[in-house]
């Protein structure tokens, strides 16, 4: 069963190709992640699938409905939580929900019951009469997720759902998202540039960079492709190491920012030999670490660069602050 079918979907803004002929299928009930750095084309993809942007070319079906032929049909069947906040701060939590319910023409009795249930689900029941401007970032996000579910969509889009939130709130939200997926069977497509988020939540991940999908699989499979272990070496001679190092148990090495990431099998067994060979070649070594491959290594493997993760960029931080502190 396919929830979303995307074929050769492309979006150009003038000369710039934001999304370049991507194709993928998302099964019903799946949590699917679009992982990539800022500006990779994730939000543009989501905007096209949610009918906010017209594709330049290509087709996509959401719940079997063509995004260009029947926009209203698609809109009725999806819920969306935007990257930027989209609540009315001058209204209460309940009123924001009620407004949404009316826009989707949900009859009054059903609407009120569902709002009650959903506010209970996201633990905002006791704050339902408070104005949204008094809410914290995490509460706003939860309210937006509840709102996105009000019309019982078959597919829920989450665009950077935990951007700018503190670790505790992120954890909390992840639990919500998983619960929603399991109990209600909702297909979830989320975009993120947080590796841990993609790893923890997603059944399958598409790594997207510069508008194209460069790898797509389950997080486990993606990591397996990198190798069973990863040794990261920090060294002034990193370029030499990356080109010269070789052994039957080494499956590859990439150099970036003064570090070499060596993909290999059974690192514990071979580490002594590896260090010895560093000595033989007289490489200067600053530090060496062994770890299981992470999505970060996967990303590096496919793109030859690290994702700019950790913190949102300066613009995001200012935006989050503005949202938080606005009256």
């Amino acid at each position: 069963m396919t929830a979303i079918h995307v074929e050769q979907l492309t979006k150009r803004f003038g000369d710039f190709t934001a999304v370049d002929a991507i194709s993928f299928d998302i099964r019903k009930g799946e949590i699917f992640g679009l992982l990539g750095p800022n500006g990779a084309g994730k939000t543009t993809t989501i905007s096209m699938l949610s009918t906010l942007l017209e594709p330049t070319s290509g087709t996509a079906l959401v719940n079997g409905i063509d995004i260009q032929k029947d926009q209203d049909g698609v809109r009725k069947s999806i819920g969306i939580v935007f990257q930027d906040q989209s609540l009315d701060e001058e209204l209460t939590a309940w009123e924001n929900m009620d407004f949404h319910g009316r826009l989707y023409r949900i009859p009054k009795a059903v609407r009120e019951e569902r709002i009650q249930d959903l506010l209970h689900l996201v633990e905002l029941e006791d704050r339902k009469e408070s104005l949204v401007k008094t809410f914290s970032g995490g509460m706003r996000r939860r309210l937006e997720i509840a709102r996105g579910l009000l019309h019982e969509p078959a597919v829920l889009f989450l665009d950077e759902p935990t951007l700018g939130l503190d670790p505790q709130t992120r954890n909390h939200l992840w639990t919500y998202i998983q619960t929603l997926n399991r109990t209600k069977g909702i297909t979830i497509i989320l975009t993120t540039h947080y590796m841990d988020e993609a790893d923890r939540l997603c059944d399958r991940i598409a790594i997207i960079d510069r508008g194209t999908i460069i790898a797509m699989d389950t997080p486990e499979e993606l990591k397996k492709r990198v190798g069973s272990d990863v040794v990261t070496v920090t060294s002034p001679d990193s370029e030499r190491i990356a080109t010269e190092i070789s052994a039957p148990w080494i499956s590859g090495a990439e150099q970036h920012d003064g570090q070499v990431t060596i993909r290999l099998h059974d690192a514990e067994e071979h580490i002594a030999e590896l260090i010895r060979s560093f000595g033989d070649h007289e490489y200067a070594i600053t530090s060496v670490s062994i770890h299981q491959p992470t999505l970060e290594d996967v990303f590096l493997h496919y793109t030859g660069k690290t994702i700019r993760e950790e913190e949102p960029g300066a613009a995001d931080r200012i935006r989050m602050r503005m949202m938080g502190g606005r009256h």
């Binding site: 949610s50 009918t51 906010l52 809109r75 969306i80 935007f82 930027d84 906040q85 989209s86 609540l87 009315d88 701060e89 949404h100 826009l103 709102r147 949202m323 606005r326």
Partner: peptide, 9 residues
């Protein structure tokens, strides 16, 4: 402040 998206979608 983003609210227009909510109505437009």
């Amino acid at each position: 402040f983003g609210f227009l998206k909510e109505t437009l979608v």
